[in-house]
């Protein structure tokens, strides 16, 4: 039963954003093994829980629109090898950036306010988290002017 009139374009964007969230959840699982200071550990746990929350809410929205949400891949291949804390955090930043691209694209493909609000929350949360990680490893600039801009 479909109660959300989702356009084809919006459905594609929402499915891609979900794909990025699936990947982020996986990447946080991997990176957690390389981050051992208590402070970073709890930051990893908090961010991972945010991604799970967005993933579930997105699945729910897609189902409401009568679209079967795509499932997570069994594993993802990091673009750079993860060998230590900093390379793990750089991978987290990549995952967050992919989520930002996904959420911005959702904003640009639908006018349904519930979905826009969800996408704005996703974009804000992921951009903020990416900035925190950049600060953690001293990467500049830590805050981007337009997160999610392709």
């Amino acid at each position: 039963m479909s109660t959300l009139p989702l356009s084809e374009q919006a459905s594609t964007a929402l499915r891609r954003a979900l794909g990025a969230e699936h990947a982020a959840v996986w990447v946080y699982g991997l990176a957690g093994a390389f981050v051992d200071e208590a402070q970073a550990e709890s930051a990893v746990a908090e961010a991972a829980s945010n991604h799970r929350r967005f993933r579930e809410r997105t699945e729910q929205l897609l189902r409401e629109a009568g679209v079967e949400p795509p499932v997570a891949q069994p594993a993802y291949s990091p673009p750079q090898p993860v060998t230590d804390r900093n390379s793990a955090i750089r991978l987290l930043i990549t995952a967050e950036s992919d989520c930002a691209t996904g959420w911005r694209s959702v904003l640009e493909t639908t006018k349904i306010s519930r979905i826009r609000q969800h996408a704005l929350d996703g974009l804000t949360t992921t951009a903020t988290q990416a900035t925190r990680w950049r600060i953690t490893i001293g990467e500049q600039p830590a805050a981007l002017p337009f997160p999610g801009r392709p």
């Binding site: 996408a119 804000t124 951009a127 900035t131 830590a142 002017p145 337009f146």
Partner: peptide, 11 residues
Amino acid sequence: GSLAASCASLL
């Protein structure tokens, strides 16, 4: 939306 997220990041 991106601008709002950017301001949150600056914070």
